[in-house]
């Protein structure tokens, strides 16, 4: 339990640091955010007035504490460009992004680990080389480029999958999804709207595949390397010496030993996917947080940027915390660290 508390307290520290840094950066960039808020035609007097209203005349630490206080009370400020509450904007878009990340990660994990294990088993043979090429391609291809490539091939030429969007446009009228949790696919399942589910999954394939490529490559390489390392360890030699079957050794003993680093990488690359969605959502016109983030960046919409950054930091910490818990479950030595 002590370990859990240690992890939680260090997570809190990271959160404070991350929010302070982004807050400060947003304040020191030369572009005056108040100008963006009132528009180019405002007078200097208007601007000064606004600065006082927004509290921008106060010292940065004071502004920061106010900001934290407000944030904790659910007031994440108003987006400068959409003039809507930032929190609301995020809540509206986040579920779609989470669904996308979930599918991408599941795909990367299942296929990455499976192919990695397969490659380890057939080390040095053709299968191994093919998987290696796939993995390297996945890691090295930029997401936006891969996205365009897949779009051209599977949506354009072959027309197997839709090119953009989360659902077909007319679905909204024919089979509208009633909002329960805000997660569109999930809601469609629990409300029994399976037409929408199928349609959503169909739309999900290309963006999820694009997003997963990098993690897939990384995981398959990691799984292969770890498994080979474990297979050459003393305790596997001992297991062989005691006549345990190769099946048992490979699938029960070795795989479980190889898992901890794979879990770590899964966690890290999930965090990486959060930023990866920014590009993929742009390419596939996905109504998630990515598009909102890109727009906010371009328009220097600092309340939105800060909100998104904070969200990314929280997401990153939550994922790491979960990873740590899984690790400890697998490897009892974790509790010692």
């Amino acid at each position: 339990m002590k370990v859990v508390w240690n992890r939680l307290s260090s997570a809190l520290l990271v959160l404070i640091a991350a929010s302070f840094i982004t807050f400060t950066l947003a304040r020191v960039i030369p572009n005056d955010p108040s100008l963006a808020y009132i528009g180019p035609k405002a007078t200097a007097a208007d601007a000064a007035k606004l600065r006082i209203t927004l509290g921008l005349d106060q010292p940065i630490p004071v502004q920061y504490i106010k900001y934290v206080w407000q944030t904790l009370h659910g007031n994440w400020g108003y987006s400068l460009s959409t003039k809507q509450p930032v929190l609301q904007e995020i809540i509206d878009r986040l579920p779609s992004t989470i669904e996308l990340i979930f599918f991408a990660m599941s795909f990367a994990f299942i296929f990455g680990v499976a192919l990695g294990v397969y490659a380890a088993k057939y080390r040095g043979r053709v299968q191994d080389s093919v998987i290696r090429i796939l993995a390297i391609a996945g890691v090295s291809m930029p997401a936006f480029w891969l996205g365009l490539l897949l779009q051209l091939l599977f949506a354009g030429r072959l027309a197997w999958f839709p090119a953009t969007g989360q659902f077909d446009i007319d679905l909204k009228y024919e089979h509208p999804i009633s909002k329960v949790t805000g997660f569109p696919l999930f809601d469609s399942i629990i409300t029994g709207n399976f037409t929408a589910t199928l349609n959503g999954l169909h739309h999900m394939v290309l963006p999820a595949l694009t997003l997963s490529a990098y993690s897939f490559g990384l995981l398959s390489r990691m799984a292969r390397a770890n498994l080979l390392e474990v297979m050459s360890s003393d305790y596997i030699k001992v297991a062989r010496a005691y006549g345990l079957s190769e099946r048992l050794i490979f699938f029960k003993l070795a795989l479980k030993n190889a898992l901890p680093p794979i879990v770590t990488v899964t966690g890290l690359s999930t965090a990486y996917l959060i930023t990866g969605t920014f590009f993929v959502e742009q390419v596939y016109a996905w109504p998630g947080i990515g598009g909102f983030a890109v727009n906010s960046l371009l328009s220097i919409d600092y309340p939105a940027i800060m909100g998104i950054t904070l969200l990314a930091a929280v997401g990153y910490l939550v994922i790491n915390f979960i990873v740590d818990l899984i690790q400890a479950k697998i490897d009892p030595r974790m509790w010692l660290r």
Partner: peptide, 21 residues
């Protein structure tokens, strides 16, 4: 036959056991 009629014990007991079982 090994592990049944012929068994072996190793130099380093710390690494001879699987750490996570």
């Amino acid at each position: 036959i090994r592990g049944e009629e012929i068994v072996m014990i190793f130099q380093n007991p710390q690494s001879a056991f699987n750490p996570i079982f």
